[in-house]
């Protein structure tokens, strides 16, 4: 366990210091600023307009930061072989996986924390506080970034190039959001094979739409957030365990 903390620190440094992570945060700032400007263009629904766009920015950060941070690390680790200088040290493969996961997720949490503070500050400026959805949305975003961070580690260890990793990650996220809708669409289909395919995709992929509490008609209850946390931790555990199993076999 003594080497894990330095590994997390190293991976977090790689994840946070790369330009992509910084650009994403800048994008979130721009989105929040745009949300503020749009309130002037939507009299009567200023609060709604601001929060809808600001929350969308938070969820985007929760998804995009782990993926892009993981991609940036992938380029260093496997394309440029910096992983060699880490694995020849007294670092175990499970420890490496753990460190990589927390580095990537840590970068996402840094971005999310800063973005949440910004949204809160802008809401204060707009006198749009208190906001009953805020805590739920922020908690859901942090939990979603855990799942995406773990999945991005698994994808990185399975794929051979960072482009493939990026595409696969993007595909998982897209399908993860679409699963309930697709499932509902094929459930009424007369085609048994299509229903089976729909059910398989539905149960195999994470249901990322469950994290979109910003879309709810009323704030998510405490028990929903608790169950969401259990769901996120279970998916994170599954992805990390699978990633470790893969990485133990992978030659670098």
């Amino acid at each position: 366990m003594g080497i894990r903390a330095p590994l997390v620190r190293y991976m977090a440094a790689l994840a946070v210091r790369n330009r992509l992570t910084g650009l994403l945060f800048l994008f979130a700032v721009v989105l929040s600023g745009t949300a503020l400007i749009l309130t002037w263009l939507t009299p009567g629904t200023e609060r709604r307009t601001f929060y809808d766009l600001a929350y969308l920015g938070l969820e985007f950060l929760a998804v995009a930061t782990p993926i892009l941070a993981s991609t940036a690390i992938h380029v260093l680790e496997f394309d440029q072989r910096t992983v060699w200088l880490v694995l020849v040290r007294p670092v175990t493969r499970p420890g490496y996986t753990w460190g990589r996961f927390w580095g990537v997720t840590g970068a996402a949490w840094v971005n999310l924390s800063l973005a949440s503070l910004l949204v809160g500050a802008l809401a204060l400026l707009l006198r749009a506080l208190p906001e009953p959805w805020f805590v739920g949305v922020v908690v859901a975003a942090f939990l979603e970034s855990l799942v995406i961070g773990a999945l991005s580690c698994l994808v990185a260890f399975v794929t051979t190039s960072f482009v493939t990793a990026l595409v696969v990650n993007g595909g998982i996220v897209l399908l993860g959001y679409l699963t309930p809708t697709l499932h509902a669409a094929v459930a009424r289909s007369g085609n048994a094979a299509l229903r089976l395919a729909g059910d398989t995709v539905y149960w195999v992929l994470p249901h990322l739409a469950d994290f979109s509490v910003r879309e709810f008609t009323r704030p998510a209850e405490g028990w929903y957030l608790t169950l969401l946390a259990i769901y996120a931790l279970a998916w994170t555990g599954a992805a990390l365990a699978a990633a470790t199993a893969v990485f133990l076999k992978r030659e670098v």
């Binding site: 994470p206 249901h207 008609t217 994170t236 555990g237 599954a238 199993a245």
Partner: peptide
Amino acid sequence: YPAAAAVFFAAAGAAGWGLDGRAAALLG
């Protein structure tokens, strides 16, 4: 690790089953 992954995956499935229905209701 594969066994651990399977256990976690099953737990995720169970939690997800509880979440989806409520999420659908809250989405309106």
